[in-house]
Design a protein around this nucleic acid. Structure first.
Lengths: 147, 147
DNA sequence: CGGAATTCAATAGCGCACAATTAAATTGCG
DNA sequence: CGCAATTTAATTGTGCGCTATTGAATTCCG
């Protein structure tokens, strides 16, 4: 089976992912407004709540983002007193990011969010997880194809 | 079953979609560089190759984007001579977007791209389509929840 | 040991995305 | 008809996300 003509945008997996991603951001918006966080900032906190005192590089690896994105984002969080940034004493190339008390306390308020998400997506936890696994595997194949 | 703790980022569907979307953009990058298009610009052309002489509003509805995103993007394409923008003669509130000859001719070169994508994603066309349908339905549920 | 190569974060510039606002054209309704 | 309400696109401002580059610290290796 070979594609001879340009596919319609509605038939394309990449666009389904692209538009579902935007829909998720819009869905999160009113919930995250309560914490005064953007969606990418929320992702940073998810990583830090799990384990903080990590470097910019490690954070970027978890989120598949580079320092050009991470650095200014984290600086904005630092300016608000939610995280701290300081050079590693042993290897001064690295910058370690830690939660402040205020940043850590936000987790409690944020607990309401995943509840609303499961409700908003509508499916069973099992079907959500199956979809997630397919997307993870897709991301891995795409990443592998880029190198 | 109720969520009591914050989920890990790797367990979250929204992040799987978010990161798969970025992986797709990175995968497309070298192919789109050959056309000197960004990924969102490519999506605009997919819509226009299918049917041009449409308004900013219609284009936005196809892509789930608003004029704040569409207008500057299309202006950049106009500056390169790939599309034209002109006010509708009947209803001057509307701006109609048409392909130029050069813009239309790009479709032939672009045909190589979806072939590479199917190869890069690796799965069967059937499994790709099943995944796409799940994501479309998810997007609809999320949009409905936002109202 | 010492210079070259590598690693790491920061920075500058471009192009989305989106919210909020503005301005103009059209429609609705008394 | 006339004026308010609505529709449409453009504009402004903020925050990603990426590329390319820079500069500093560290590691590699002869």
């Amino acid at each position: 089976m070979v594609i001879k003509k340009m596919p319609t945008i509605d038939q394309m997996l990449c666009f389904a992912i692209y538009s579902a991603g935007h829909a998720f951001t819009r869905f999160y918006k009113p919930r995250l407004d309560a914490l005064d966080l953007t969606y990418p900032q929320y992702l940073v906190f998810l990583v830090l709540w799990e384990k903080d005192d990590i470097t910019v590089k490690t954070l970027g690896e978890r989120l598949f983002l580079d320092s050009g994105t991470i650095t200014p984002l984290v600086k904005r969080l630092e300016a608000r007193g939610l995280v701290s940034r300081e050079r590693d004493k042993v290897d001064e190339r690295q910058v370690r990011i830690k939660l402040t008390d205020e940043g850590r306390e936000m987790e409690t308020k944020a607990l309401a969010i995943p509840l609303a998400v499961v409700e908003g997506t509508g499916g069973s936890l099992e079907s959500i997880d199956a979809l997630r696994q397919e997307l993870d595997s897709l991301r891995e194949r795409l990443d592998a194809a880029v190198r």
